[in-house]
Write a protein that binds this DNA or RNA. Sequence first.
DNA 1: TTATATATGTAGATTAGCTAGGCGTCACTC
DNA 2: GAGTGACGCCTAGCTAATCTACATATATAA
Lengths: 110, 110
Amino acid sequence: MEQKSDLLQGTLDVLILKIVDLGPIHGYGIAQRIRQISKKVLQVQQGSLYPALHRLEKRGWLRAEWGEAETGREAKFYSLTKVGRKQLEAERANWDRLSEAVTMILRTAE
Amino acid sequence: MEQKSDLLQGTLDVLILKIVDLGPIHGYGIAQRIRQISKKVLQVQQGSLYPALHRLEKRGWLRAEWGEAETGREAKFYSLTKVGRKQLEAERANWDRLSEAVTMILRTAE
DNA sequence: TTATATATGTAGATTAGCTAGGCGTCACTC
DNA sequence: GAGTGACGCCTAGCTAATCTACATATATAA
């Protein structure tokens, strides 16, 4: 089934945490930011995004409150909790460790 | 449930293909090599390894044949097919693209 | 008026990887 | 000779993440 993913599986959480860490932002905006910063390499589907946000909120890493978007519409704004910030640091470190290891293997010569 | 993974999800296939590309090797050896090269950062569980090998073989990327391991025991040796080598290149390129994008986002300041 | 962008969400399917088991052999030690 | 651990293969069943596809509502541009 080809598994043509728009993400690196398992990285969505840390990406969301990082984007939210840049400042309160609503869900739709998170997806836009990820797409934009990555120059369209990473694309978060809505069916992945919203469940992920609810997941992270449930775990106590994100806090949500309704507010007004730049466009004047109602939107749910997310921000990091204290635990969420710790989680971000942990996941970021984990990413560095693991991705470096993968790259190391892929570059192994001989 | 904390998802304490020993791998970066979705990278197992490319890791296996890469290791096999270094020369014919049996399943158990693949796991050892990955563990060794990554300095124990990446650890493939047997319950992940063997299904993955069968998956890759089924897709025509790996070829398997029984042979004798260094220890004198029977073992299944895997090698890359032509399609498998192409797949390795594709997945490696994909890894570079995606991991770079993730790292870029995680390093975004402000 | 019709489409596109914004904004939120759910249902259902797929898939990968994990835990936890099983089988058989060999070498070593207690 | 009994037990342990490494080697080498395997499967069953679970969980979790992500995807596709849908639904809803408003605003704006063509």
